[in-house]
Each structure stands twice: as structure tokens, then as C-alpha cells.
Write a protein that binds this DNA or RNA. Structure first.
Lengths: 202, 202
DNA sequence: ACCTGAAGTTGCCTGTTGCGCAACTTTGCC
DNA sequence: GGCAAAGTTGCGCAACAGGCAACTTCAGGT
């Protein structure tokens, strides 16, 4: 009737509470530090019961990284959308370029979240869950492009893992000196370096 | 008086309980699955109180990965011991070769642990803590070798991250088909591939 | 418009956990 | 032998995960 893209009141409401919980978690984490927040507080701020929180997320970390999860779905979508003829590494790099071109240096929520992880290494563990999922996703995408040249799939997994490792390192480096260069400049250079390989270096 | 290498009864006892807790945790995890074990059970099996467990490890996962931590110390030690003139990637590869040559395909405890992680992805999060520490360690080691050529340290971090990512993927791949090839053969090939870079590939 | 079942929310409850605190025991050293 | 430091333990508390059973809200067929 109204918006054709919506899947019904039910779905929308569910997504709304999930989003509310996520935002509440992020806000509290930024205000008080991620170790000083309780599930109760998050649920309160989001206007639901503690028990309902549990229906959406297994723990605070998962709520906190809901944003990451969505960003990763976006990135893997961009990779899938690249032309099938494009070589894997080029496709990944291009997808990353598109990704960061539109929200890279701009999304303050993303930066805040990343900073949070750097300052509280305990969160890193939780973040990895999401990274692992994305790595599997990307490996599958890359495998399609390698096809016959990589029957075992090792090469695809290596490419995906290396790619994400490079992005992760780039982000960390950039977060240390955000002023010097724009993030994508760091990432682009790093991807280029890794693409060339490290064996030949002094 | 007795063994000159030991640092005294105190240290030895402490290490013994730590080891006992670690072994108890691993045994229980293998028997019951890592989600069905409690700190109580581990402490019981190790013959100490639950409270004492807390004095050694923050949680079961940390206990479970005590073995990993030690292996990583070993690997980073091997890297440090490589000749300073050796190029970084070569030094890492050589150290890994030494490492796996002596305990790679042999240590059943290590294999059991790795299998556990594969079967229960929730553990992966915990394992990353250790990997992160090692990555930092290796990055420092690599940075020494790059010296002037890498003032920002990005390159060193990239090398370390890529190196560990490759080892991780290799292990996963090998665990899927342990019979076909020996682990180090998989890892050696993978390291070679990553060393050459992925940009040039179709 | 109504009805029925499925989906979502909530309160209650139980088992588990992390950790501060204060005894108590063991070890190291003089 | 004796004292201080280090290690162990029981107790207690706040927080957490998740099963269960009401209760409310929504969706689709009639």
C-alpha cells in the first residue's frame, strides 16, 4: 500500500528494535566505555526489556557490531557486482574502492566504532566473528572467478584472507594518524603492496 | 640444589597448576564439547578451587588457548633468531619451516585444539586474542629488518598480518583434508603464493 | 469483519561467571 | 626459627545466557 519495498509492519518493527538496540549499545559504549555498560542499560535506553535484548543479540558485543555486519554485507555485495571477467584481486580492490568512496572517510559511526575497538582490545575478539563471516563470503566470491585454476580453493581463501588482513592493518594504521592521509590512500597503497607480494623485498 | 634450570619451587608449582588447568580444560572440551564445560568442572579436574582458576585465567577460552600462546612464543622466538640480514618474508618463512619441522604434523594436542576451533566457531574469537598478540610481536620483528625502508611501519604490519593469515588459511585447508598432503607442504606452497602476490593473477 | 495461528515481547527463574575481599597456607630468605 | 611475600580458598555480589510460559500483536484466510 504505502512503501512497496517494506515487507510488512512486522519486519519493519523488528528491524526498528534491532536498530534501536544497536544504537543504544553504541551510544552507551562511547559514553561510558564498553566495559561499563550492562545489557540492562542498553535495553532500557532502547525501550525494551532485558529479555528482549537476548532475543536479538547474544551479548553486548554482538549488538555493538551490528553496524559492522551490515557494512560487510554491503562490501561483499559490491564484490559480487563486479564484472565476472575481472581478475580476483582487481575485483576486490575495485569493490573496496567503491565501498570507501561513498562512506569511507565519511561515516562517523564507523570511525567511532573502530576507535572503540582499538582502545579496548577485548572487543577485537567479538569483531573477528564478523570478519570471519566476511572472509568466507569473499572466498566464495573469489573462487567463482578462479574456477578451474584453483580446484582446491586454497588460492581463493588465501586471496580473501590477505585482502581482509590488508584492510584491517590499513585501518589500524590510519586510525593512529588520521590527519596525515585519507584512509583510502593508505588502503590503496597497502593493497597495491600486498598485491605485488612481499617475497621480493629486502 | 636439584635442577638448576628450575627457578624455585614456587615458580614450578605455579606453572604446574597452570598446566593442569590447561590440560583439564582441553580434555573436557574434547570430551563434552566446549559449550558444555564449566569453570567448576575444569577446576575440579585440575584439583583446585574455582576461585583459583580465576587467578590464572580470565575464562575457559583463555585456559583452552594456553597451548596456542606457548606455541606462538616459540614461533616468534624462532623469527627473532633468524639472521638479521635475511629479508623479512624469507625470515618468516624459514622460521615457520623450523617451527613445523619439529612439531608441525606431530603434536596431537595442537591438532585436537585446531579441530576444536574449526568445529566451534565461537572459539575462534578467543583464538584471535592470541593471534593478535603474535601479529604485533612479528610486526616488531619485521620492522627491525626493514628499518629505514619503512619509516611508518605499515609495510612491517602488512607483512606480519599477511604471513599469519596465510598460516591460518593453510591450517584450515589442511584440517579439511589431512590425508592428502602434509601440513607443511600446504603451508609452504601457500606462503610462496602469497609471497609472489595476487595482483598478477587471472 | 472475524478468527486462528504464528511471531514477538516480557517476567520469572536457574545455572554460570568474573572478581573484590578477607582469611589461611605455603614458600623464599635471612 | 621466623617474617614477609606469594598463592589458595570460601564467600558474596552483580551480571549474564537462555529455557519456559503467559500475553500481545500481526498476517492471512474465510
Amino acid at each position: 500500500m504505502s512503501a512497496p519495498t517494506e515487507q510488512g509492519l512486522r519486519e519493519r518493527k523488528k528491524e526498528a528494535t534491532r536498530q534501536a538496540l544497536y544504537e543504544a549499545a553504541l551510544r552507551l559504549a562511547l559514553e561510558l566505555g564498553p566495559d561499563r555498560i550492562t545489557v540492562d542499560a542498553i535495553a532500557d535506553l532502547a525501550g525494551v526489556s532485558r529479555r528482549t535484548f537476548s532475543n536479538y543479540f547474544a551479548n553486548k558485543e554482538e549488538a555493538l557490531f551490528h553496524g559492522d555486519r551490515r557494512r560487510m554485507l554491503l562490501l561483499s555485495g559490491l564484490v559480487r557486482a563486479r564484472p565476472a571477467a575481472e581478475p580476483p584481486w582487481a575485483a576486490l580492490t575495485a569493490a573496496a574502492a567503491e565501498f570507501y568512496a561513498e562512506l569511507g572517510d565519511l561515516d562517523p559511526e564507523w570511525i567511532a566504532q573502530s576507535r572503540l575497538v582499538r582502545q579496548h582490545p577485548s572487543l577485537a575478539a567479538a569483531q573477528v566473528q564478523t570478519f570471519t563471516a566476511l572472509e568466507r563470503e569473499l572466498a566464495g566470491e573469489v573462487a567463482v572467478r578462479f574456477k578451474d585454476q584453483d580446484p582446491s580453493g586454497v588460492r581463493a581463501k588465501l586471496v580473501a584472507a590477505t585482502f581482509l588482513a590488508v584492510l584491517r592493518v590499513s585501518l589500524n594504521v590510519w586510525l593512529e594518524h588520521p590527519a596525515e592521509r585519507r584512509f583510502w590512500d593508505v588502503a590503496r597503497d597497502s593493497l597495491a603492496m600486498a598485491g605485488e607480494g612481499f617475497a621480493a623485498q629486502t
